[in-house]
Write a protein that binds this DNA or RNA. Structure first.
Lengths: 186, 186
DNA sequence: GTCGTAATGGGACAGATGTCCTTTTTAATA
DNA sequence: TATTAAAAAGGACATCTGTCCCATTACGAC
């Protein structure tokens, strides 16, 4: 549930070291928001260090966490193509260090750097291919099974993610999560 | 809920007419499967005419419909980048006509045709950005509201999509869908 | 320390949903 | 027309989940 993309990270570092003029490094503290929903930005971010949550808030203030993003994950890139305001919110969970690239430079890289272009394509393809199975699984399986599956794939989940966020990731209430956990006797 | 991509369709037609050697046209009947889950293919498809459903089946045979794809939508492209077998199933709902491009040619186009490259990027970005709000909305809103929302955005949905498929799209059982519909007195 | 706030845990109840079945309707075909 | 099979509709029941509480614990600011 904490996604990473080592390949994109290492290539971004290479680009950064060969020409620092167009890429910045920024730092954020836990609970700071890097991107807010429905606002416009001109930056694409790639995570160098730390973990964020990516979530949507509905009109009633309920959050649905899409994904936890770790090293090498990019965000803000969708809006380069859609030309719309941000559709989700990105918030730091841990200390966070990011590479920050302007839209202009991002587009330059896409046009002139074939390897970068391919890596971004790949990153987007991955985002598509892990969303579908997750939502499908969540819809049709009891909460207990979803929890067991997460424990299996990310044994360290409780260390980084609060119960509240876990519930929001599963699309359920905290009460239901607690009930499920006590059924599992964890 | 029936996605389209006119821009990609018209550009594909242009490519097709300028050089027919690397793009085929194929036709399918309703209920025919173009792509099956967990199989490997070497083709990317772009819909010229008709509607398909894209769904995942779990181990118990329950289907979760990701999306209904109409004119100009592509499928099979994720696997070019991930190098994995297909993660979903694509099945014709209506009479279907598709452009079929080999992986080799698809990669050539991506490398050598900047406009094509950009259109594919855009198409993937869109796939990402409509999945998230939908699943978020579905999780937190009662079935009735989801139905009303679909009716609003796609008044013609009942004409193309069966009740059974609508239920699978909403991630609920047919029984629950019927109950909701009778509450709404539709 | 202590005050306040957030995180955690759980009881009680109502309402929503799935499962299992049966019936009705529709449409296609012999 | 008669015969199926598929789609649609819905009853009955058990279970799951959310809502609304309240209690406890942990932790940081003062």
């Amino acid at each position: 549930m904490i996604r990473t993309n080592p390949e994109l990270l290492s290539y971004t570092e290479t680009i950064y070291h060969s020409n620092k003029h167009h890429i910045n490094i920024e730092q954020y503290n836990p609970t700071e928001k890097i991107i807010e929903q429905n606002k416009r930005y001109n930056w694409v971010y790639i995570i160098k260090e730390g973990v964020t949550k990516c979530y949507l808030s509905d009109e009633k203030g309920k959050d649905f966490i899409q994904e936890f993003l770790g090293k090498g994950m990019e965000f803000g890139e969708i809006e380069v193509f859609s030309n719309k305001p941000s559709f989700c919110c990105i918030e730091a969970i841990t200390e966070l260090i990011v590479y920050k690239i302007s839209y202009t430079h991002f587009n330059n890289l896409l046009e002139n750097d074939k390897k970068f272009n391919k890596l971004i394509m790949k990153a987007m393809a991955e985002k598509i291919s892990y969303k579908a199975p997750r939502h499908s699984y969540q819809q049709y399986h009891p909460i207990e099974e979803n929890i067991l599956k997460i424990k299996e794939n990310f044994p360290e989940f409780t260390e980084v993610v609060s119960k509240n966020d876990l519930a929001k990731y599963l699309g359920i209430t905290l009460r239901s999560l607690n009930r499920a956990l006590s059924n599992l006797k964890i």
